[in-house]
Amino acid sequence: MTRAYAVARAADAVDAAAANGPDCLTVVCNGMIGRELYAHADTPSRFYMIGSMGLASSIGLGLAIVQPARTVVVFDGDGNVLMNMGTLGSVAAAAPANFYHIVFDNAAHGSTGDQRTISDRVPLDAVARAAGYRSVVRVRDEHALAGALQSWFSTRGPAMLVVDVERGNQPGIGRVDPSPTELTARFRARATLKTHSA
């Protein structure tokens, strides 16, 4: 399946979970994954990290710890996870039950021209399991992705879902439009909104 397809289905699952439960806050890594998410469906509950490669999971971790009543979802890529793999250990050690990590894995640096990474030889699901994520699943096709997403947010985190995707980018895809400072302002307002009477 293409990465853009998988990103769109994952975003739909996040939005469905948010409609039926606690608010979902999504942190998305730099590169094509963020652009694909933005092009599919943007909302103020998404934080697009355009620089600082490798840090989406760290941002999600800090957020999940200080907002335990929200569901925090990190959209990540294999290149990003590999760049700061120690954070998988930080996530497992802190063990926030509201932390959901979805990794779109094409074993390539998509944004720079699909140069290969090492995730074809270093399986990131095995690394996350060894680090101590409570739940880790890898899916390889559309059907398995749909099945995994259906119940994923009722799993206790930290949970990782690795999705095998094809290489290649959508031609002509746009960039994330709001400026970084606008993204911070709208996301922080959403993340700190008092939505529940408690």
Partner: peptide, 23 residues
């Protein structure tokens, strides 16, 4: 609630997340 980070840039990312969450 001190979080002992594995690298300083990861600590900065965690701090950014905490700020976005209101801290």
């Amino acid at each position: 609630g001190y979080l002992s980070a594995v690298r300083e840039d990861s600590a900065l990312g965690i701090a950014a997340g905490a700020y976005l969450g209101g801290r």
